[in-house]
Computed example of a mutant assay.
Amino acid sequence: MLNVDDIQKIIPHRPPFLLVDRIDELEPGIYGLGVKNVTMNEPYFAGHFPGKAVMPGVIILEALAQTGAIVMLSLKKNEGKIVYFGGMDKVKFRRQVVPGDVLKLEVKIIKDKGNFGVGSAVAYVEDEVAAEAILTFAIM
């Protein structure tokens, strides 16, 4: 398990844009299961939406991407590098994510070709899918 201090040694993201609180499972270059504890203190809730806080879908995708970055940057050969989005495919939002939810972030690397790759990403609240996507990335 990686805590937030360990995570910050792997990826360059920092609050308020660090969107992974811990990693519960990690197979470098292959698989990661992260956790984001969604609280009302998130800065985006001030405007999304007043009176009905809903985590923006793009923020869920970013949390998944950060989990994927941890998976790839945990490889010794990628230490100190940055993972960039290359694209998103088959994005589906299945349920709202609201303050108090614990968002589980699962990323499986399905293609790894040098500095480019593809991950299958699914975000869950309890056992219910909140969002899913195929994420492409570049490591620089």
Rank of each mutant, 00 (worst) to 15 (best):
L2E: 07
V4S: 04
V4Y: 02
D5I: 11
K9G: 06
I11W: 09
I11E: 04
I11N: 11
I11R: 08
H13W: 02
R14W: 09
P15E: 10
F17T: 10
F17Y: 14
L19R: 01
L19G: 02
D21Y: 03
R22I: 05
R22T: 06
I23C: 08
I23D: 00
D24I: 09
E27A: 12
P28M: 07
Y31M: 12
Y31V: 11
N37R: 06
N37K: 09
V38W: 04
V38K: 00
T39A: 07
T39M: 08
M40P: 02
P43K: 06
Y44K: 00
Y44H: 03
F45V: 03
F45D: 01
F45S: 10
F45E: 02
F45Y: 07
F45A: 05
F45T: 04
A46E: 08
F49C: 08
F49L: 04
G51H: 13
A53K: 10
V54R: 01
G57W: 13
G57E: 12
V58M: 03
I60K: 04
L61I: 15
E62L: 02
A65G: 15
A65P: 08
A65W: 09
Q66R: 01
Q66C: 10
G68Y: 02
A69Y: 06
A69N: 01
A69D: 06
I70S: 11
M72L: 14
M72F: 11
S74N: 02
S74H: 10
L75K: 14
K76C: 09
K76A: 15
N78I: 11
N78K: 13
N78F: 14
E79V: 12
V83F: 11
Y84C: 01
F85M: 07
F85G: 01
F85P: 09
G86I: 14
G86M: 14
G86N: 14
G87L: 03
D89W: 03
V91T: 09
V91H: 05
K92V: 11
F93I: 02
R94W: 10
R94G: 04
Q96R: 06
V97H: 06
V98K: 12
V102T: 04
L103P: 05
K104E: 00
V107I: 11
V107H: 09
K108S: 14
K108P: 06
I109T: 13
I110C: 08
I110L: 10
K113I: 15
G114E: 10
G114F: 10
G114N: 11
S120Y: 03
S120A: 13
A121T: 09
V122A: 01
Y124P: 00
D127H: 02
V129E: 07
A130N: 12
A130Y: 01
E132T: 06
T136R: 07
F137K: 12
A138E: 07
